[in-house]
Design a protein around this nucleic acid. Structure first.
Length: 652
RNA sequence: GCUCCAAUAGCUCAGUCGGUAGAGCACUUCACUCGUAAUGAAGGGGUCAGCGGUUCAAGUCCGCUUUGGAGCUCCA
């Protein structure tokens, strides 16, 4: 047979094995092979025909996947050995490792993981081959029943009629599995069990909760160590840790879950962003500011539909008191701004009406859902609604996307987001209102806009709002989990519900369209994202303390105080605690790591009205007149410049 | 909401077999007046998250509550 490998054709005996071909081509550590593009195990027999072969090693994505999938089988075998009464569910490979879901008779804890790891090592050392075999459906079910593997029986029952039902055997352990796998257990060179937690069977909260054990595996101990070090590193960027350490926010048990307190530094950062966004929207993008109540009578939410569909998610007040109106804290701003629109009559010439509000919202999230600053019960969002004529919709929607993109660029995070066109699900029509043709057409418009703006995006079925499709802009946190940062929604239907209209050129009432949008999302979540993005080393304009003035001795405190006052007069943030009053000899305290600038003053600087500038961007910037430094930093702040960092060890 | 883990000084953490609490950093005071990642000395600071139980005795064992963490589910 002729085998084409790495673009070269070679002749092999018809019975040649993949191992022989790999060896002949000096491919080491082959875990599997792609024969004409189909992934097969190394042990697979070739049929003697001509083929193109590509070997898969751990360096390949597929290689990592099957390597770790085999590791998950070893985990399962170890567990069945130690806990014979446990029942296995599923055990796939995931991005950075693998997991196995198991139903234990008695709960498992972190301490048990070590014993399981030891057992896994034994299995690896025993070097069991992984052998595949297939069974007809009836026999497969009977076989799994014999082992008491109820979940596997359920899985088999759900397989399509014509599915091949295969098993993998290693030693005396057998697992239902489609494969492929690596050939024996000893190929697993390095692994680690990382954590255990709960997970619902088949991801359904009505099902039993199983124990999920997470682990990872690498082809060498060094790679594993590098990965574990990386996990330690990202913990240091975790906003929930770093944000507290940096005194940006805190939580208090008597205040409650999901209600973080922004401390002076965190509040200052949010104020900086808020002032920027409000001025930007109002002065450059044609928005009008509103300021609407944080709560309303239940009547409002009955019109909007929230009372029926979202009551559980709202904080309801006065319920059960007959002498009081039942109120609810607002979970969104939409209907409030609709009533601002409705307060006056609008000509077609008045549209688009672009309303924006720095809006605080309240959502009664379930107790287990809160996390740091990214999932909270009260948050503040740059929320806006654009009331537009249908003919203006495409242009206005695009402008919303342009604005969002601009905000991301200024924050320096435009590379870190993914764009999504969230579509309806035609197979689940009762979840949505409106006609299929309208959905298709609208989604087409948004697709064109995304292409026009020139961003890459995915199309996600079933992610739309019930009233229309939307663009979601998501970002990953340091642990790789995605959060929606920005959303822009197309709504051609809600105006009807609130009886909103404008008068067209013929004097007739017409329904406007609505865009629900945010420009930079919610401030708390964005702050969290910035902390992780910059590991606390923010661009100067965002820093809560942009400059610290340090006299080398108390003798020069007067001059330091003078410098600090001059900086403040120019809108430059020095200390947030009015420390100038008590400025002392604090030179040793100053760490440039997270501080953009440090001004050191002594006798020479006082006499010459200069400052010695140190920055984390350039190290020692030398002695300059105070006025020169002020112009320099003021410009950097005004331009929202993101100066490039110089690592500490390389600074002068 | 679910499974598991945790809670000791402002922060990071020790605290063995159940026998009335300890360090470093921070804070205060004094001394030092120093040119860029930690000056020296002294001092203050704890109802061991809360409530209940077991016990002669509970930071330690048990239960409930609250808060925090990991993950699942949810996020109109």
């Amino acid at each position: 047979m002729i085998i084409k490998i790495n673009g070269v054709q070679k002749e092999y005996a018809n019975e040649a094995s993949l191992f022989e071909i790999a060896k002949d081509n000096e491919v080491k550590n082959a875990l599997a092979a792609k024969v004409d593009g189909n992934l097969v195990e190394m042990r697979s027999k070739l049929d003697g025909n001509d083929h193109e072969i590509e070997f898969v090693t751990f360096q390949d994505k597929e290689g990592k996947k099957l390597y770790r999938h085999t590791a998950s089988h070893i985990l399962a075998q170890a567990i069945k050995t130690i806990y014979p009464t446990s029942k296995l569910a599923i055990g796939p490979a995931i991005d950075d490792g693998f997991y196995y879901d198991i139903d234990f008779k008695t709960p498992i804890t972190t301490e048990n993981l070590e014993a399981i790891e030891q057992e896994m090592k034994k299995i690896i050392k025993a070097n069991y081959p992984l052998e595949r075999f297939e069974l007809p459906r009836d026999e497969a079910i009977a076989y799994m029943k014999k082992f008491g593997e109820d979940y596997k029986v359920e899985l088999i029952n759900d397989l399509p009629e014509d599915a091949v039902i295969s098993f993998y055997k290693q030693g005396d352990f057998v697992d239902l599995c489609a494969g492929p796998h690596i050939v024996n257990t000893k190929l697993i060179k390095a692994f680690k069990l990382l954590s255990s937690s709960g997970a619902y069977w088949r991801g359904d909260e009505h099902n039993k909760m199983l124990a999920r054990i997470y682990g990872t595996a690498y082809s060498s101990k060094d790679e594993l160590k590098a990965h574990l070090d990386h996990l330690e590193d990202i913990k240091k960027r975790d906003h929930n840790k770093l944000g507290r350490d940096m005194q940006l926010f805190t939580t208090v048990d008597v205040i409650g879950q999901g209600l973080p307190l922004l401390m002076p530094k965190g509040a200052k950062m949010i104020q900086t962003m808020q002032r920027w966004i409000e001025d930007l929207e109002d002065n450059e993008w044609g928005y009008m500011r509103t300021k609407t109540p944080f709560m309303a009578k239940s009547d409002l939410y009955k019109i909007s539909g929230h009372w029926d569909h979202y009551k559980e998610g709202m904080f309801v007040l006065n319920e059960g008191r007959e002498d009081k109106d039942v109120m609810a804290l607002r979970p969104m701003t939409c209907p409030f701004q609709y009533y601002v629109y409705k307060a006056t009559q609008h000509s077609y010439k008045d549209l688009p009406c672009r309303y924006s509000e720095t809006s605080t919202l309240f959502r009664n999230e379930d107790s287990g859902e809160m996390h740091g600053l990214t999932r909270v019960r009260q948050f503040t969002i740059s929320e806006g609604h654009l009331i537009v004529r249908p003919d203006q919709m495409v242009e206005e929607f695009k402008r919303c996307l342009d604005l969002a993109k601009y905000c991301l660029e200024v924050l320096g995070v435009e590379e870190d987001v993914t764009y999504h066109l969230s579509k309806w699900d035609p197979d689940n029509r009762e979840k949505y209102i409106g006609e299929p043709e309208v959905w298709e057409e609208t989604e087409g418009h948004i697709r064109d806009i995304l292409n026009d703006v020139g961003v890459e995006f995915t199309e996600d079925v079933g992610e739309a709002a019930f009233y229309g499709p939307k663009v979601d802009i998501n970002a990953k946190n340091v642990y790789g989990k995605e959060d929606t940062m920005i959303t822009i929604q197309w709504d051609a239907l809600i105006a009807e519900q609130f009886d909103m209209y404008y008068i067209d050129e013929n004097g007739e009432k017409k329904r406007p369209y609505i865009i629900h949008r945010t420009s930079m999302g919610c401030y708390e979540r964005t702050l969290a994202w910035l902390i992780e993005k910059y590991a606390g080393k923010f661009p100067t304009w965002l820093c809560p303390e942009q400059v610290r003035v340090l006299p080398i001795s108390e003798k020069y405190a007067d001059y330091a105080f003078e410098v600090e006052k001059e900086l403040k007069r120019n809108g430059i943030l020095t200390s947030v605690d009015n420390r100038a009053e008590k400025i002392g000899f604090k030179i040793r305290e100053a760490r440039l790591e997270k501080l953009p600038y440090m001004l050191v003053v002594g006798e020479k600087e006082r006499d010459d009205k200069t400052v010695s500038v140190r920055s984390r961007f350039a190290g020692d910037e030398g002695v300059k007149p105070l006025s020169d430094f002020i112009s320099q930093i003021a410009e950097e702040i005004r331009m929202k410049e993101i100066r490039k960092e110089i690592p500490l060890e390389e600074r002068k």
